[in-house]
Write a protein that binds this DNA or RNA. Sequence first.
DNA 1: ATTTGAGTATACGGCTTGTAATTCTAAAAA
DNA 2: TTTTTAGAATTACAAGCCGTATACTCAAAT
Lengths: 213, 213
Amino acid sequence: MTPRPYVSRARAAAAEARRQAVIEAAAAFMRANPMTVFSLESVAAAAGVTRLTVYKQFGSRGGLLEAVFDVLARNGRLGRIADVVTDPDPREGLMRLAEVFCDFWSGDAAVGRLHDAMATDPDLARALSERNERRRRAVAALLERMQLPATAGQRRDAADLIFALTSYPMFRLLSGGRSAAGACALIKAACSDALDRLTARPPAGRASGTHWH
Amino acid sequence: MTPRPYVSRARAAAAEARRQAVIEAAAAFMRANPMTVFSLESVAAAAGVTRLTVYKQFGSRGGLLEAVFDVLARNGRLGRIADVVTDPDPREGLMRLAEVFCDFWSGDAAVGRLHDAMATDPDLARALSERNERRRRAVAALLERMQLPATAGQRRDAADLIFALTSYPMFRLLSGGRSAAGACALIKAACSDALDRLTARPPAGRASGTHWH
DNA sequence: ATTTGAGTATACGGCTTGTAATTCTAAAAA
DNA sequence: TTTTTAGAATTACAAGCCGTATACTCAAAT
């Protein structure tokens, strides 16, 4: 009973097409419904396949969510990050970085839903956190290129602050009753302030001397 | 068969004691475990009661979570907010406000777990959002008292930015690899910068003229 | 024509949140 | 002290998840 060679071209293509259909159906479902009603049964029905097919394709609920995030990142033009980190003017690059991510956070509602799912899916949380670290490294690289008169600790503080300012939770908090452009302007202003703190001011700033118990 | 009057003193007291025990058991469970394994069965067992007792006391899972949040807010010394909004120096009051909330976010790990639960529990999300609006109003009140040379829109932007800076997501993002005191210092510095933008700078700041598509 | 693989159908087990009916227990009233 | 009564425990049930296992279908590759 030695298995004979079998390479399926059309079958693999059809499977890949169905896989993409399931991913798109999941993304569409996430755009239209809160994450509390997201279930494999629902997306399977929306994609016209069975729940078992989803399992065969993605292994688990978390696997499907990670696959959805991958296409979201691909469609979200996050490839621009490579451009902005090499911007001749690092400061301008940082502003463009903020714009790229505001664009990403506001472009597809499914992105926010995925962030909600992080609370219930530890695997997805790790995957997204890892992706976010790329943003932190991009910010740090831009800061390094700015030749700032600051200690390593101050640079790290600034990088972490800008990392947080350009995060999805920050964007969501500022998006209440405000356009995406307005939220982006606020975020860029705050990032700019964080940079000014490192350049124009004395090492011990106005509020850094206060106590905290 | 007209029921005769019956007012239970000791029984009601015992019920209230059990209620508090359930709340404390839930908080302890949340401190020790991630929210993904939180179930009424677990907390009921930890509290030494039955799951049905939890339902009789709190009505639902969300009801229990809201009750937990109430005692957390009570223990978290959030009553200091009333003091800081009436601080003679509004700017100092804002710094104290940031400290009060950094204290709250870092004081009990259950607070963070409750924020995680917001993603799965819409009722809890509404309840916590409503509480958070109190913070926004406190920030706005302090800003009003500062007599800033700014338009209403600029004040609203600053209030929203400071509201976001003092939120739990911001604190969590800045707490990675940093002490609570360090995160608080960063947050206060950012808040201070947001105020400086309204006072010392021209109405059109350095980064506010950039575009966003 | 026969093997092969992907999808389907069906079923099960385990865990959740809720609800319902019944019984037990101890405190309050007579 | 005896009876009434509220609260909790017990048991059971319905529905919805996720995840897995087995057998079956059917089109594609050999």
